[in-house]
């Protein structure tokens, strides 16, 4: 009985890791598309988003099955409930990466110096996601803490992007639409950072049993 349960828990871990890897890849593709304006990359982000959504459903079903059939307690229960929360955040990350991809496709390959700044944001955000997934894989609370701390970096970068975009609008009012697109992208990356923080917090919860908020 227990060995079957252990097997199911291992599957849950595996699928969560895979879903995390998909999120990482989606963000990486989105941020690369931002600097290259490559249409193929945006398509990839969109298809990854679809896969992430399917994965969320699958993991959700598995979690509910485990909860109902095995009635886990203590650490197992924490792990499963944390997984249920984490997949919501991962799904949001996937959707936001897809939104970024859509905006980039809409921008028609236009890139500029402002994009570089957003690229830094994208790098920081994707590193946060990588760290939080790593923390999950290694059950490393310290790494989860590092990921949470990095959110400030992303927030600061967002403010910088915002002020430089304000300047851009003031200087070239005709580029207002472009500037707003970039602002949306920056905001999405900032949100991705927040979701990464959530994931890291749930990782810490599943290990220590304490959820900081």
């Amino acid at each position: 009985m227990r060995s079957r349960f252990d097997e199911q828990l291992a599957t849950l871990n595996q699928e969560l890791t895979q879903m995390g890897a998909m999120c990482e890849e989606a963000i990486a593709a989105a941020s690369k598309a931002l600097t290259t304006g490559d249409g193929k990359l945006t398509d990839k982000v969109l298809s990854l988003d679809g896969e992430i959504n399917r994965m969320e459903r699958a993991i959700e079903t598995l979690c509910l099955k485990l909860l109902l059939q095995q009635q886990p307690v203590a650490r197992d229960l924490r792990q499963i409930s944390a997984a249920l929360k984490m997949i919501t955040d991962m799904e949001r990350i996937g959707t936001q990466a897809a939104d970024i991809g859509e905006i980039i496709a809409f921008m028609d390959g236009r890139t500029g110096a402002e994009c570089q700044q957003i690229r830094f944001m994208a790098d920081a955000a994707s590193q946060m996601v990588t760290e939080s997934i790593d923390a999950f894989v290694k059950k490393d609370v310290i790494l989860a803490g590092t990921a949470i701390g990095r959110d400030d970096v992303v927030d600061d970068l967002f403010l910088q992007v915002k002020s430089s975009l304000i300047k851009l609008i003031a200087e070239k009012p005709a580029d207002g639409g472009y500037a707003l697109d970039l602002l949306m992208i920056a905001k999405y990356f900032e949100r991705i950072g927040d979701h990464a923080v959530n994931i890291a917090e749930w990782v810490a919860f599943s290990v220590t049993g304490e959820h900081k908020k």
Binding site: A10, N13, Q14, T17, Q18, A21, E25, V137
Partner: peptide
């Protein structure tokens, strides 16, 4: 351990 914990990139898996 699971190989996923070492290398989780979609490509490799």
């Amino acid at each position: 351990e699971d190989f996923l914990t070492v290398e989780r990139s979609l490509n490799v898996n």
